[in-house]
């Protein structure tokens, strides 16, 4: 069997998720051994030509150019897989959704006339069919390797959609919400990071976005009981997955 041909594409994003691929270090040679990394501007000089068995997409669609580009990549790819919060929910740049884009551009750029942007930052799945989404800001190296390994043997990757609380308890961390009243999004956040922040006595920031059947309303009610004010709750939900419906709706409820 010939090695699957991989293309890695960047949309509006910070590059952090792509770099997770390079960050595989010990496993990187094994990855390179089983996959033909045909297009990956962060790592190779090859041009973007031809068909890809696997396309990794990082970033959100935030410009008219990106809206066209994703259609082209979709047409040339067998499996299109999104990497990270930007590609999966719109990213932190989706904070601009619903705001006055022109006013932002005027405030930030010396020459607003050079800026050609959409009014929204949207997930890839709003534009094309996505075969698999890897969550996180950034994605987890462990999950990326699992994704590659599972794809190669033809099984579904194991990236459970359950709460971060499960991973927190598996790791033996002590709950920061129950013992300290720390605002924590763990109970509504998709697992994948290994409960990194609670392991350092911090609340979960929700980097992996909403879990399946997230009850954000019940959690925010308890955060308020524990002493968080509306502004804190609003801001907690308005980060890397601000545009994910379960987070956005609850943030709006705390405007």
């Amino acid at each position: 069997m010939s090695k699957p041909r991989l293309g890695v594409f960047k949309f509006s994003s910070c590059d952090g998720c792509q770099l997770s691929l390079l960050d595989c270090e010990d496993e990187l040679l094994a990855v390179a051994g089983v996959i033909d990394i045909a297009y990956f501007p962060e790592a190779t000089r090859a041009d973007d030509v031809g068909h890809y068995d696997i396309a990794f997409i990082e970033g959100s669609v935030t410009t008219p150019h990106e809206a066209e580009m994703i259609q082209d990549i979709r047409a040339r790819s067998t499996a299109l897989i999104t990497l990270g919060a930007c590609a999966t929910s719109g990213g932190i740049q989706a904070l601009k959704n619903g705001a006055d884009t022109a006013a932002f551009i005027d405030a930030v750029y010396a020459h607003p006339e050079y800026i050609d942007t959409l009014d929204t930052a949207t997930p890839i799945s709003d534009h094309v069919t996505v075969d698999f989404e890897l969550r996180g800001c950034p994605i987890s190296k462990h999950q990326l390797i699992e994704l590659v390994a599972a794809t190669l043997v033809g099984r579904t990757p194991q990236t459970p959609a359950h709460a971060t609380c499960i991973d927190c308890k598996l790791a033996g961390h002590v709950c920061v919400m129950v013992t300290q009243g720390t605002p924590c999004l763990g109970p509504v956040t998709h697992a994948g990071c290994g409960a990194l922040c609670p392991g350092y006595a911090r609340g979960c920031y929700g980097c992996f976005g909403p879990k399946e059947t997230a009850n954000t309303a019940s959690l925010t009610a308890q955060l308020a009981v524990n002493g968080a004010d509306r502004r804190q709750i609003h801001r907690l939900l308005q980060t890397f997955n601000a545009n994910a419906p379960e987070f956005r709706q609850e943030a709006e409820n705390h405007d």
Partner: peptide, 13 residues
């Protein structure tokens, strides 16, 4: 059900 987070903490502990 309105309150339950489906977070599974009860079953883990």
């Amino acid at each position: 059900a309105d309150r339950c987070l489906n977070c599974a903490n009860c079953t883990m502990v």
